[in-house]
Amino acid sequence: MLKLTLNGQKVALDVDPNMPLLYALRDIQQLTGTKFGCGAGLCGACTVHLDGESIRSCITPISVVEGKAVTTIEGLGVASDELHPVQQAWLENSVPQCGYCQAGQMMSAAALLAKNTNPSDEEINNHMQGNICRCGTYPRIKKAIKQAGVMIQDVNQAKPATGKKGVQA
């Protein structure tokens, strides 16, 4: 049994330790928000967070995530009925076309903004170039990332006195 924390819940999985995390999420945990696009670390459709960092789940054996915390698009929102600022900005800019790449795009964007709420164009390009969108939503992704960054800054500023953390990716 492999144990990990998945979207805040402890889970134990009885799977081959070599199985890539992507298939464990989709087939075993039935969390189908994370997508298959290439199976080779080339497209970013399968991006999830491992202890807050974005990783490609299609090339990450499940054994690597043992004992760690994995977050998928289904767990990105702060609370279950609240959208993450990245999701809100994505919605406001009507970013998705077919939408298939967008879970990966948003997971990558959230990981970027967790470290840097005011990324430059170049920083966005560097961080996001592993995520392909064949439909061509890049201009909106750039805009939405900047907007989400401002939203996160606002939330963080509104809450400094409580000592609580603001929005986390």
């Binding site: 928000g33 990105l76 939408g99």
Partner: peptide, 20 residues
């Protein structure tokens, strides 16, 4: 308001590969 966008951004939209 576009139909289906919310489901996409929540990861709930169902594509052919998502059928179980």
């Amino acid at each position: 308001k576009l139909a289906g966008q919310e489901a996409i951004i929540k990861g709930e939209a169902v594509y052919a590969q998502d059928i179980q």
